[in-house]
Write a protein that binds this DNA or RNA. Structure first.
Lengths: 160, 160
DNA sequence: ATTACTGCAAAGCATTTGCAAATGC
DNA sequence: GCATTTGCAAATGCTTTGCAGTAAT
């Protein structure tokens, strides 16, 4: 329940993630013979500075001005790299524009999305995953990843 | 399964669906105080004439010329109505542009999508659904619908 | 020095929308 | 006859891309 955490704790956790992630991203880039640039460092830092879910456009807006300026195009390009490197995951369920979520230091989980407030509720269930694995072997399908989303109304919104 | 069917059988099944669906769509429209128009009938028929999965743009292209001409805008508008009426379901997993699938005369099912050939494999599993229901009550979440997709490589593509 | 990356602005693409003409009720 | 729908084309909004300049190796 990261929401209940105190600001300080959250900030520490975030900083820790960036510090762990950056060297890994550097090796990823080197392996790919791509370059280690300022812009890429800034985007990565900003991704980890954000909450768990964010959209590309918001991120681009945040970086469109100020000392850490990175252009919109580069933000999108870097986000694609980060996805390839396995730091973030794209979500295209609710809206036309893509949402992203961290996958680094963040265990696999599924989502419930509230129709009313749009809140993402995370949950996980080992038995659920087991059923998926079974279904795959039954259909001779080799799973790479999966995505489970439940749409409906959350408890808070039903009280109102 | 439907792929193995003979053309005739498939055609009959399709025609049956349209004939059942149209009157239902008419009552839906009347209840909504909307109008029963030619364009809407054509779009509905074309939706059922298509395979199980299709995208809005393809449908619009098919109807952009010929005797059953319906404009692109109207196709999108009608598709939204049909979704509201519960005949089709939107899928936004693979690509930027939305895919649709029939939900009329078609039991609830989940998908596996092959990374290589893009094929949709349908599967269903009652126990899987049960776990979802449980997770929802655990989180005090009222489910409206859900969506499960597994990404990976299908058996056929791994043989090549 | 060479080659990749960035910024910018322009292009793309699916989808939506405004408005005059057409159609259903 | 009146209100809703349609067709068309223009607009929208997110995302991608071409190109000239800039930075990393």
């Amino acid at each position: 329940m990261s929401k209940m955490q105190q600001g300080t704790e959250l900030a520490e956790e975030v900083q820790q993630s960036v510090e762990e992630a950056w060297p890994l991203f550097v090796s990823f880039l080197k392996k790919k013979q791509a370059r280690v640039t300022q812009a890429r460092k800034i985007v990565l830092a900003q991704v980890f500075a954000r909450h768990d879910h964010f959209c590309a456009d918001d991120l681009a807006s945040e970086l469109s001005s100020g000392p850490n300026h990175v252009s919109r195009g580069t933000v999108y390009r870097t986000l694609a790299l980060m996805e390839e490197a396995g730091f973030v995951r794209v979500i295209r369920d609710t809206d036309v524009h893509a949402h992203y979520e961290h996958t680094f230091n963040h265990p696999v989980h599924e989502h419930m999305i509230c129709d009313v407030c749009g809140e993402f509720i995370e949950f996980s269930d080992d038995k659920l995953i087991q059923r998926i694995t079974q279904a795959c072997s039954l259909h001779n399908f080799k799973e790479r990843t999966h995505r489970i989303v439940v749409f409906g109304v959350c408890g808070a919104c039903r009280k109102v």
